[in-house]
């Protein structure tokens, strides 16, 4: 979706304010949101792409006003209702409605180290060879899907060169909507800074973007 989350190259988005000796979390609630998101994700009812997309769906003005963990909280609340973990009433009142408990057991504390160490690999295998090879010229397609995509607006229609083939990975555009993993080859594509931004860019500078095969055309 052409949302406000797709920020590459925008102006007027505020200053960058590094903080000396920044704590990992600024508030306890941020730590709890982080942990609840991870723990609920462990059920496997959704995936990282769905969870990103849920945050992208927060209305733009709210998205920009919210802090990072407020966006996580908002996205999580929506996912919990959508996937039947909570009813809207429960979410609003904070009180559980009596009814059948979900059978899936919660992530236990002793499984946390394994959960972190294992992660959730997105690489898959495929019998089809990569369509592009390193050094090949490609153009990012001018796609404007209404759903989730990881093709940033600032590279659409731009020409670049395949720098390396990363392998085969889950395709976010379908996975985010729980329409299957549809794995595809992913490439690191080098775009010359001037191809992206014109004369304001320094000639030798470049931006490397990881792009799925379906986002690219041969040049």
């Amino acid at each position: 979706m052409n949302g406000v989350h797709d920020m590459g190259g925008m102006h007027g988005m505020g200053s960058i304010q590094p903080e000396e000796n920044e704590p990992v979390f600024h508030h306890r609630w941020e730590a709890r949101v982080f942990a609840v998101v991870r723990a609920m994700g462990a059920f496997g009812r959704w995936n990282i792409d769905a969870s990103r997309h849920q945050r992208e769906l927060i209305p733009a003005a709210e998205q920009l006003r919210m802090s990072y963990y407020e966006r996580w909280l908002a996205g999580l609340s929506q996912l919990l209702v959508r996937h039947g973990f909570l009813s809207t009433q429960e979410l609003a009142t904070g009180k559980p409605v009596p009814g059948p408990m979900m059978l899936a057991p919660a992530l236990p504390a002793d499984k946390v180290p394994g959960f972190i160490a294992g992660g959730s690999p997105a690489a898959r295998t495929s019998n089809s060879p990569p369509r592009f090879r390193p050094g090949q010229r490609v153009r990012a397609r001018n796609l404007n899907p209404i759903g989730h995509t990881r093709l940033p607006r600032y590279v659409r229609g731009k020409a670049g060169m395949v720098d390396r083939v990363h392998g085969v990975f889950v395709f976010p555009d379908t996975n985010a909507h729980l329409r299957g993993e549809s794995p595809q080859h992913v490439y690191s594509v080098r775009f010359e800074a001037q191809e992206l931004w014109g004369d304001v860019a320094v000639p030798r500078d470049a931006v490397y973007v990881d792009l799925w095969e379906g986002y690219l055309d041969a040049l």
Binding site: R38, A106, L107, V112
Partner: peptide
């Protein structure tokens, strides 16, 4: 609702 274990949250 038995969906999260607070000790797992602490561990995370």
């Amino acid at each position: 609702k038995g969906l999260v274990d607070p000790q797992a949250l602490d561990a995370l």
